[in-house]
Amino acid sequence: MKFSLGPLQYCWDKAAVEDFYREVAVSPIPLVYLGETVCSKRRKLRWQDYFDLADMLRSAGKEVVFSTLALIQSDAEIQELRKQLTNSSVTLEVNDMGALALAVEQQLPFVCGPGINNYNLTSLQKMANWGMQRFVMPVDLSQKWLAPIITSQPSFEIEVLGYGYLPLAHSARCFTARHHGLNKDNCDTICSRYPKGLLTQTMEHQELLRINGVQTQSAACCDLRSEIQQMRTMGVDWFRVSPDSINSIGLVTALIKGEESDDVPSIRCNGYWHDAPGMRYL
């Protein structure tokens, strides 16, 4: 099993993003997902900036995949994506069926991201017929669910989001803007104030959610590092780390080197993997 770095889900300044990927380039991480997956109003980096980062990463020997928005709501977003795909040979991680439709239209192979509903082998086989090369398991599915998929010896690779805050939902509403008395149309990209999202607790001070613009994440960090041996035995191809800071690069590097880490997230969860409520840690 190999280790990958998922797309950055937060709104960072361009310089911070560039610093981050310069460090990725000199790390041993073999597979990197790039792109804006949460909100098309975040424009600190443009497509060309991502293409430039991809060139840098590829020349450092990395495989690069472009991740699309999780919720495509406007024609402008589709047209922008179509324009970028025309005459290009990028591999996409599709997180919306509109992006999948474009990949099929342009006969491009694709990775099916965790935002696409895939709940059974028959659907996955259909996806494979459409060009899916790799399947990232939706975050709410378990080891027990995955086992028979791998046993069927599928034609596509399997990737599991093994470490990081879980994307739980996407809305038309920007919750970060709402928290500041703004709305999406006049948001002032206020989400950039929260480089790891806005943590929220219940009234009993139990951490529950992490608000990231139109996206809602888990407050707890999913940590499946103790399941790595089991995943290897099962035949999982990729263990994904969803980055939340520059330290995530060191975390993946340690995993690649097989180093033990005493770096334990302050709140962690692994419930979904064990077929339990996602927020639990078992």
Binding site: N117, D140, L166, A169, H170, S171, T216, A276, G278, M279
Partner: peptide, 16 residues
């Protein structure tokens, strides 16, 4: 429902 339906895991995160 304020989230994109069918892709919301808030209920399963808390209740399974």
């Amino acid at each position: 429902c304020i989230m994109a339906e069918g892709r919301c895991q808030l209920s399963s995160y808390v209740t399974g």
